[in-house]
């Protein structure tokens, strides 16, 4: 995985709560057997009409949000299905960070596996950011994971929290399976212990 570096990007406001993973990437696009190419179908039902034409009022179809790399949304973002196609689609579209007051657990985990940083902020901070995107056309934020800070060009600085181990993995772009396999002796010891499960599928 690529290391997560500090970046500056346009914030796309998606003023909805309970955005579910069915909305992020509808089921008809889950049939591909690769991880790439899902960006074209991101938010498909909201983004395109019945003829497949972009709906002009949807935020990601409007300049300059079609180039956004930060998504701003309301609470419980990513609820529903566990499909990792949701972060794949967000990443493929060009998003690197999602900001919301809360995230669904499975989606939150899936983001970190794909170099996507979900940032949880208090609801009034999120409200403030929505107001700022409203006020400044093409509002931008700098996302600095190392220092756990969001900054804008109007001197706003917002600190955010993140699990230290997850932060390290993102910053260093570490392969989690490699990390786990370094514990091979511990896994094997458990498998040889009395507590280990008996084979089931034999």
């Amino acid at each position: 995985m690529e290391a997560f570096e500090t970046f500056d990007g346009i914030v796309a406001p998606l003023d909805r709560s309970n955005v579910d993973t069915d909305a992020i990437i509808p089921k008809q696009f889950l049939k591909r057997v690769r991880k790439t190419g899902f960006g074209a179908y991101l938010f498909f039902e909201w983004r395109f009409d019945e003829e497949g034409e972009p709906k002009p009022d949807f935020v990601l179809n409007r300049e300059p949000y079609d180039r956004a790399s930060i998504l701003l949304a309301r609470e419980n973002f990513g609820c529903g299905s566990s499909r990792e196609h949701a972060p794949w689609a967000l990443k493929d579209f060009g998003f690197k960070t999602i900001i919301a007051p809360s995230f669904a657990d499975i989606f939150y985990n899936n983001c970190f596996k794909n170099g996507l940083l979900p940032i949880e902020l208090p609801a009034d901070r999120v409200k403030q950011l929505f107001a700022l995107t409203d006020k400044h056309q093409g509002y931008r934020l700098t996302v600095d994971l190392e220092n756990q800070q969001l900054r804008d060009e109007h001197d706003l600085v917002i600190d955010f929290g993140v699990d230290p181990e997850r932060k390290r993995r993102l910053l260093e772009g570490l392969d989690e399976i490699d990390l786990t396999l370094k514990l091979e002796d511990k896994i094997a010891a458990y498998e040889n212990s009395e507590r280990a499960p008996a084979p089931i599928m034999n």
Binding site: K35, K113, N114, E176, I177, T180
Partner: peptide, 21 residues
Amino acid sequence: AFGIGTSEIEHVLATQTLPQN
């Protein structure tokens, strides 16, 4: 019993473990 993403499936298949909070 809980749902996981595809990266986590790969992790489980390879290691039969999954780091969790």
